[in-house]
Write a protein that binds this DNA or RNA. Sequence first.
DNA 1: ATAGGGTTAG
Length: 600
Amino acid sequence: MQISMPIRTPSLVSRRRLLEEKLIGLHKWTDLKQVKQVHAQILKANLLQDLSVAPKLIAAFSLCHEIALAVNVFNQIQQPNVHLYNTLIRAHVRNSQPSQAFATFFEMQSKGVYPDNFTYPFLLKACSGHSLYPMVQMIHTHIEKFGFCSDIFVPNSLIDSYSKCGSFGVNVARKLFMVMGQRDVVSWNSMISGLVKAGELGEARHLFDEMPERDTVSWNTILDGYVKAGEMNKAFELFEKMPDRNVVSWSTVVSGYCKAGDMDMARMLFDKMAVKNIVPWTIIISGYAEKGMTKEAISLYDKMEEAGLRPDDGAVISILAACAESGLLGLGEKVHASIKRTKFKCRTSVSNALVDMYAKCACLDKAYSVFDGMARRDAVSWNAMLQGLAMHGHGEKALQLFSRMNEEGFAPDKVSFISILCACSHAGFVEEGLQYFYTMERDYGIIPEVEHYGCVIDLLGRGGRLKEAFRLVQSMPMESNAIIWGTLLGACRMHNAVDLAGEVVDHLIKLEPSDVGNFSMLSNIYAAAGDWDSVSNVRLQMRRIGIQKPSGSSSIEVDEEVHEFTVFDKSHPKSDKIYEMIDRLVQDLKQVGYVPKAYQ
DNA sequence: ATAGGGTTAG
């Protein structure tokens, strides 16, 4: 290598040549420190205005998630060309800021710089990550007007973007695919992947069979189709007869078994993998975490780090989400520690995942400290924090945060209102909650959805205003669902409204005929009212229908082990002793004046 | 072009 040759006094020319050699791979660098060093060297050598150097620097900053630095470099260039604009558009896309990407596109046009074959695919990528159907259409119009369809790369991107915009988009993609004069393997793969995403597995399989030639990506795509449809037998059959299997193929089946809850099979395949990158580790760790198998999840996380793999943003977000769902504080803290070891600041979505995890694990102070330390917050950050406060009964604090959100200029969205209404109902602020519900549409232009009605029904129900709640269910502009009736049933139990409960359960069993929870709730209500005939009647009904579906469960983490339990749970070997203990506790509670809502 | 990716009422 020339670089390692001893050079004592490099002339300006050779120094410049050395720098140029370094710059060849610059656009792929991910180490911010190194990129900053080279940036300084470029400035010193007066190379920044060189239009083959600046795009590489922008790309490198973008790969380090330093979009501000990338924009800064761009703004210093006196005469940006298409290539430079394309690089900035790509940087915005990578940073999940489609609106910035489009702003750059419009600026470029106003400066008289014409887009090229690369501009449109980048812009289309910006849309497909966010399903911006109208934007895809707009670009499509541009492309047809300027006639860029000759390059197969462009129509392929169109098919990919359209097919990621819901079922209507898939139709457009299908038509484009049909009229394409020339197709390569990417065209076929894009179309098949779109059909798989839209749930059209049959048609996807048909195209797969018709393809003139298939590569590993084609096989992986159709394999994922079976995995997404939950058809693990067919998926595994396909996996075994694939001509070539790569990391993606293996990861796909491992993920399928995780989703199906077959952790043994998932683990067996995972252990068999010869080549592993961060993705399969993420899949298996999240899989264990989701099932509450803390020990396995933590031990694999340690093994992953021992193997020298650092979790990237995707891994962190995915594992933290699984921790949040199952309440695995221990693993969540471990992930947080890994982040703190390697990064000074995280991307907004990573901090959001941390806030959500801490909030769901009831560590509200830690959630708050991450939230307060964030450089930039988006709607998700506010909503995760609001929801955490609401969920754990801190109604007052949730409302305070809601005001702060408004003061700082963040418009609450429909999710924020779910949290606010939930906060009011858990804190017993019935009138305030109703007022917030009314302001939604009036002041913020957000049309209440079934979830919001659900919160208000809970609000009224908990507040004892059962009749109003019931009337609201009947007068809402949309169909009621099992969650709504379940909410109402919970309220009936709380206020011993026996007659109404029977009526509610009638609706409920039509929607969830095999859910034990509904029956046990009804039986509790009759028991609380001392109506033992009705209790045995419900029991009889339960047996007649035959209950297959397990009811909802609660879980608690003790000594790094998650314990899960359901209503009437008798599965624990010491369950007699446990119920004895509960009896004693209830007796003690009664002595100090507690009246149990349902007890038998 | 294919695998993992924050917030949503009981």
